[in-house]
Amino acid sequence: MLYGNDFNVIANVSKVIYKTKHINSQLSKEKQNNKTTMTNDDIIQVKDLTKQFGKFTAVNHITFNVKKGEIFGFLGANGAGKTTAMRMLCGLSYPTSGKGLVAGFDISKQQEMVKKNIGYMSQKFSLYEDLKVWENFSLFGGIYGMNRKEIKDRTDKMLKELNFENERNAMVSSLPLGWKQKLAFSLSIFHNPKIVFLDEPTGGVDPITRRQFWEMIYAAADRGITVFVTTHYMDESEYCDRVSIMVDGRIDALDTPQNLKNLYSAKDMYDVFLYLARTAKRS
């Protein structure tokens, strides 16, 4: 795609500028270093993406790339513009200006194609409470155009992985929250999307379930699914391959958690986040 190639060039240039700017930041771990060099594998490419609501600029010229198979943490205080940016990437909202490619499709023009290739788990708990577990799977399989056999096989496999085989016929409303969240995640990758967008997936979940949840995220990433996740838990951000931090609609920092900590001479991501978030003028 011609436009996509142009885009890569721009992205590479910006990356070079970015790197020289932070020349004193340490080299990251071997594994991540390999990934950062493979810029052709960028599955999300965003350039100057902007969203305005009247005079309010929710997202202000953000530019970043996400590599295939990466776990990308998208951080920011409440109101920093995370959800708005994410909604644009998911084809739920039109950008005011700027460009974005998700899975190779233009987010302003090819929303249907974008939606076919992504999974989405929203901030609010998003399963149908009055449907049984298998009915939820079957509904979403159907929405993504899977046939009956595919749906059945996938459901069996997923329930087995989750150890939920006995709950197949249970009404979702009868399950504990942690289980529901795990189910919701399984549902968001049920159709094998290229990217899955998780909007604060672990809100209100106990530490053990959060741990299990992140194991599921790693398993999905191992299968080649790119994970784009927002969270308010700073320990979780350490689990990400790379992290971006949004402040007042801009991306103020973007690197591996280790590099960010070195750059800001912080002992953990919590300090990095506090340092950046305090510069915010909106609140």
Binding site: C90, G91, L92, E112, K115, K116, I118, Y120, M121, S122, Q123, K124, F125, S126, L127, Y128, E129, F140, I143, Y144, G145, F197
Partner: peptide
């Protein structure tokens, strides 16, 4: 209200 509309809008269904 329950947030499932977001999920449906994020699906390829028009």
């Amino acid at each position: 209200e329950r947030g499932t509309m977001e999920l449906l809008l994020a699906s390829p269904m028009p």
